[in-house]
């Protein structure tokens, strides 16, 4: 088997990018985003992208970079409140957005990777999210049919990974990454630590290697904090 290990983000994406493609990008806000792969997509200049991601980064970082560079045609997201450019482009009609409730988004991606074409949920019944969608009653309750989501490529970020593509995420940086890894026709994973095969605890693997086609260790991680909140050291009780 050819190696999954790539030397850098640009070579990890080589041959995979084309205009008009759908990209899934892991992360919640700026937490757990594939920083290096996003930069490499910006450098590639690929455009008319449909991007599936819970958020769209912030002005000047994360997916906000692709937005500024005019590479995104459509976003499928649940929350974009931290991005002024996004709000402006959307209100001016220059960016198409499919607002999807966060849980529905996560489940659509999970379903996409699990071979389930659609599912029913109570979320969004009676709201604009339900417009044009089939509804069905189960046990006296109305549910909405939601379709699965897949992508031409998914880019995810993990804490540790190995040559097999096994991934372990860290704390809340896990978020959408595991489902997205399963729902891309090709999944490219970047990790903070590429470790020798056999050193990860096999009972603790979050994403088994079958889902990951290419893997690289990022040269650096800025891991920008969106909202720094702390309590003073003198305080003993909880904030």
């Amino acid at each position: 088997m050819a190696t999954k290990i790539q030397s850098d983000a640009a070579s990890a994406l080589s041959g995979l990018l084309f205009d008009g493609m759908t990209v899934m990008a892991g992360g919640f806000g700026l937490c757990g985003i594939p920083e290096n792969l996003i930069l490499a997509i910006r450098e590639s200049g690929v455009k008319d992208l449909t991007v599936v991601s819970n958020n769209c980064g912030v002005d000047g970082f994360g997916l906000g970079l692709l937005l500024e560079n005019g590479q995104i045609r459509k976003m499928i997201s649940s929350y974009v409140g931290e991005n002024e450019l996004f709000e402006r482009l959307y209100i001016e009609g220059r960016l198409e957005v499919e607002f999807t409730p966060q849980g529905t988004l996560a489940e659509r991606i999970r379903a996409g990777g699990a071979g389930i074409p659609a599912f029913y949920t109570r979320t969004g019944v009676g709201t604009v999210v339900a417009e044009g969608k089939e509804t069905r009653e189960f046990d006296g309750e109305t549910y909405l049919m939601e379709r699965a989501l897949k992508a031409d490529i998914s880019i995810v970020k993990a804490w540790k990974g190995d040559a097999e593509g096994n991934l372990i995420y860290r704390k809340t940086a896990r978020n959408f990454n595991p489902m997205m890894a399963t729902a891309g026709r090709v999944c490219v994973a970047e990790v903070e630590h590429l470790v020798p095969t056999g050193t990860l605890d096999k009972d603790m693997i979050h994403t088994p290697g079958v889902y990951v086609h290419r893997i690289l260790q990022g040269p650096a991680y800025e891991k920008r904090i969106e909202r720094l909140t702390t309590r003073p050291r003198s305080e003993k009780a909880s904030a």
Binding site: G103, K171, T230
Partner: peptide, 30 residues
Amino acid sequence: PFEGEEDPDLVNAGKMTISELDSSSYFNSA
């Protein structure tokens, strides 16, 4: 978190840095 102990991998839904407890658990969005 205490000043200086903030962790970019540990945030709440408002993207604010938080801390964990002995009883905490982490999981994916689905």
